[in-house]
Nucleic acid binder design. Structure first.
Lengths: 341, 341
DNA sequence: CTGAAAGCGCTTACAG
DNA sequence: CTGAAAGCGCTTACAG
């Protein structure tokens, strides 16, 4: 118990109390603006003056300890460094968390189970109020058992048969929007270059593609659906196959922007122009590609920011405008119009 | 003070002590493996058994409070969502931090001063042991005054005239390595498509380019240096200018992968082949581009992961193998060989 | 309108 | 070899 004047020591609530000549309880009430306790205006002034004079900052750790509720939200992410997606999700989560006085504790697991276990232990030991379990692409996950007794929201993923709330993108609507853009431009022979994995994205976008065609009475032609990969290379392959058809399509909906980029290259190689010779729509809205290919690519965005933000809302039990008890929160994928259609 | 059996309550050190029939001090010594206190093997066993039986997890917040030292490292980032760069830096920082029992508190500021101020206040209130002030591209920064009395390391940025340690990429060596790759392949007419901003990257890479030429006695031809932008569009412009020269270069070092991508497009448009007609080297190693253009692009990587990791080492005062007192930590940019040379 | 006191879950000299 | 006790910086009934 130092008398005073240890120069480097940060001011505590006791210092403020002493200077303002009140009890530390009073200081606590004043700075937390708790109006349950009636404190005179004069006293409040004295307290705030002392706070300013000492440059007092509350110790959030002590606060959590004594109040019994922390303001941490843990985020476990499987891959924060490979795409900008995780960053967008985290940013959405952070903005929403800050809005409510919460702070993010981020843990990257690299999809390694032991790293994940370490991450969860770490988050739990820090008394997080809840955990966002997130993935960088929309997929099904197995929820680690350690999470059983924590407050959890799945972000950009889901667990079949679990009762955990999840926030996911609306792949079906996304696929439908992409197709609609092409339909709106008058196209009827529209190819869909899908990816090969069995995933919500491949299934949902195909479903949306079909729904869009059906809604306009455009017959579904199975031959116009190619099942390839998700990288640029698949765009090249797609161009080859599409152009070899007896009646080639006039428009292509690509599984993602990377495929569209490959397709662009292949078309250019053949002297074909986008959109004059072939209209193209992508998916993902990866700015680095979509914003800068020639011509800039019209695409559908994955709402990672929104997913992060919504996941925090669900975690904190805020009103999201959805019926209460909603477990599956589906976020729309907006169309981003550029010049490829 | 509940007697026992509040079901949802998490076990505390007192519960463990009671079950193991020792004092909580003893429990603390055992679980923290402090060998300054001699505790009998038998007692240790009893304590660990109790820990297991109760599923006890220490409360990291209480630990920080009483020990007076937190295990938080704050990271303030200017843009976590636009590129994968920030994610890589954060991942490097996290891996290194975890290795030493620290945890990351991440704050994104979006380059907004008021958000930044809020972030710093938040980090400071959480008693962070130190702060990594980071940027997603290498640049000079003004360090906010609030950081004056915190332990700070600048990551991927620097503050002229400040005494804060910084960790930055070696732009000069990177530029030199890129040029060397081309020189090694036998090229002597090598263009450099630089970007226009006045920044460490533009200055350093140019310097490296010149140094590489000089080292091989290749005369520097100012006409071969183009000063354009940093996006794909500049690659198109570059191709146009380069090919219009009376004696066009046979190789190009592009400021970054995006410029290289634009250059690829323009070359393809003209029926030219990489590397046969023109060898190309990029910078940044943005996998989404460099790994998937045709042919895959040889480039120089920005060491963001390493920067994050090193910054944590510097913050924690670990031995980095550099002379003690080093303030400017320069990280090498490795060459990533693919097929464009 | 405000203060004294107990408590949050740990750590750490200090005794013995 | 181990325990009793004070303390970290807050919050929150409880009194008055």
């Amino acid at each position: 118990m130092t008398e005073a004047s240890t120069p480097a020591r940060r001011a505590t609530i006791a210092d403020v109390a002493r200077l303002a000549e009140v009890s530390s309880a009073t200081v606590s009430f004043v700075i937390n603006d708790k109006h349950t306790m009636r404190i005179s205006e004069a006293t409040r002034e004295r307290v705030w003056a002392a706070v300013r004079e000492l440059g007092y900052r509350p110790n959030a750790l002590a606060k959590s300890l004594s109040s019994g509720s922390s303001r941490f939200i843990g985020v476990v992410a499987d891959a924060i460094a490979t795409t900008p997606f995780a960053g967008q999700l985290i940013q959405g989560a952070q903005d929403e968390a800050w809005r409510h006085g919460y702070v993010l504790l981020v843990a990257n697991t690299d999809e390694e189970k032991d790293v994940e276990a370490q991450a969860l232990r770490m988050l739990l030991e820090h008394q997080v109020a809840g955990i966002l379990y997130s993935t960088y692409y929309h997929r099904e996950v197995e929820v680690p058992a350690d999470l059983r007794n924590a407050q959890v929201v799945l972000a950009n993923c889901y667990a079949e048969g679990s009762s955990l709330p999840c926030v996911v993108p609306d792949e079906v609507q996304g696929g439908r929007s992409a197709t609609d853009v092409l339909l709106d431009a008058g196209h009827t022979r529209i190819a869909f270059v899908n990816s090969v994995e069995d995933a919500p994205a491949t299934r949902g976008r195909l479903e949306g593609y079909q729904a869009a065609l059906a809604a306009r009475d455009v017959p579904f032609d199975e031959g116009l659906v190619l099942t390839l990969g998700s990288h640029q290379e698949s765009g090249w392959t797609a161009a080859e196959k599409l152009l070899a058809m007896t009646e080639p399509p006039t428009a292509v909906f690509c599984y993602n922007d990377r495929v569209a980029m490959g397709l662009y290259d292949a078309l250019r190689e053949r002297g074909l122009r986008v959109p004059a010779d072939m209209a193209v729509v992508g998916f993902d809205n990866q700015e680095i590609i979509a914003g800068h290919v020639r011509p800039p690519l019209t695409t559908v965005a994955l709402p990672h920011y929104e997913i992060g933000a919504r996941a925090v809302q669900v975690l904190l039990g805020l009103d999201t405008g959805e019926p209460s008890g909603t477990l599956r929160h589906v976020i729309a994928c907006p169309t981003v119009t550029r010049e490829s259609v």
